[in-house]
Amino acid sequence: MNPFNYHKPSTLAEAVALHRDAEDPAYLSGGHTLLPTMTQRLAAPSDLIDLEGLAELTGIAAEDGTLSIGAFTRHAEAAASAEVAGTLPALAELAEGIGDAQVRNRGTIGGSLANSDPAADYPAAVLALNAVIHTDRRQIAADDYFRGLFETALEEGEIITRIDFAIPSRAAYEKFPNPASRYATAGVMVADFNGTVRVGVTGAGPCGCRAHAFEAALSAHLDPAALDAAELPAIDFNSDLHASAEYRAHLVRVLAQRATARLVAAP
């Protein structure tokens, strides 16, 4: 790891100013992607701006059909939150299934979304739950947020402050973990908003995406069999050591069907 300046601002404005004034800064949230690349000397920011002290990035609240989660909320906090469990149990389950206990105790929802790893879990939820990403300067709709491999709508120095999820009547998340890393080889969240279904997919392509044909089929008939012949998302499916594009595409359909089956079976 190369030497760097460490900052721990206590306000959002201070953090943004530090970022603006530094030579080659990086925000530090959970650090689960940034720190390993720094220890491998693949990244060498001049300044690390730790976001842990920002009160603006904390808190979980549910009201008026929206579950709002502060960007610095760690995965373990989201998984254990009574608000999350009470309003969006599928999201609590997703958070509980991220990585392992050490990862969940450090990693944050904002950090995960800012990084936009193609195999992260949260993108499936952000898309299926029609979330709004709040930043220090604006609000970004889920459908406008993911742009490509590790690419998002965020601008230089922009900080996610909180994520507002629309609370559906019911939702379910199914994940096929990479056996080694336990990232999502593919993950699918199906959410039912009073008969209008949204399907968010992660792990399959360069970034999170919606499965529009699945949504149409399920909105017409909320049944796993409705997906038997529905068109897959029109993306370039990832192919790696653990899953070819063909297998991943197959998994997306199977996971969507399993999520639907659970959702239908839920009380």
Partner: peptide, 11 residues
């Protein structure tokens, strides 16, 4: 070696 870390080598 394409399985040079625990990201790809599955213990």
């Amino acid at each position: 070696l394409t399985t040079g870390s625990y990201m790809d080598y599955c213990m």
